[in-house]
Design a protein around this nucleic acid. Structure first.
Lengths: 108, 108
DNA sequence: TGGTTGTATGGCAATTTCGCCATTTGATGT
DNA sequence: ACATCAAATGGCGAAATTGCCATACAACCA
């Protein structure tokens, strides 16, 4: 494996994580699950989509390691695994705000 | 606009940013542009894709405000606008590492 | 003015994502 | 065993993404 090859794989791995977050419902779910663990039914209510849809979203988040499951009887309790999501979200806010400012300036 | 409506829009706005980052080439470009501004031709060499492809990737990054352009003659110099991308990337690394650990533990 | 270089855009086929319905699987209780 | 509830999976059409080719556009130079 060449060096270039290696870094390419690294960016692909990162992109997988970004892709897992690249959906409004999944961002909402991450936000909720960061505050407290929840089962699929509760999340389904909050998101307002079909249960199967929510279940698939959770599978995507789990696949990249952003969330983890704990099964208790028939219920599956999901939770966020990493503590660095706040940094993620606040960076997004920064981008959104600075972008807004930039657009305002371009109107002057 | 209802309250729910408003937060839904917020998550859509965030998802747009995450989506803009959800591609290996664009992550590489952000990495490069964070170190120094570059023109499209240089980026095209680094990424190893068609010039039109790179140009479209840049348009996506610019659309969400992650990069900005400075035109100098026939050249377009792009650069990263926000200083918080390192947090983004390090969080991704954290997720990748903890996910790796989790998978190792599950083999024990 | 015509030619060259750097960048952006139109178009299009291939691939991926999305969300619902229907169904299956698993655990629990009767 | 059977019914029930929670969750996961198969499938499929609709929508979005991706990347290249061809082309247009813009600045520069001869």
């Amino acid at each position: 494996m060449t060096m270039k090859e290696k870094t390419r794989k690294q960016y692909e791995a990162r992109a997988k994580i970004a892709k897992a977050m690249a959906h409004p419902s999944r961002l909402l779910m991450l936000d909720l699950l960061q505050k407290q663990e929840m089962c699929v039914g509760d999340l389904t209510d909050q998101v307002g989509a079909d249960q199967s849809t929510v279940s698939k979203h959770l599978a995507i988040l789990k696949e990249v390691g952003l969330v983890d499951v704990r099964k208790e009887g028939a219920l599956s309790y999901y939770r966020v695994t990493c503590g660095c999501l706040d940094g993620f979200f606040s960076c997004m806010e920064t981008v959104l705000l600075s972008d807004l400012k930039g657009r305002q300036n371009s109107l002057k």
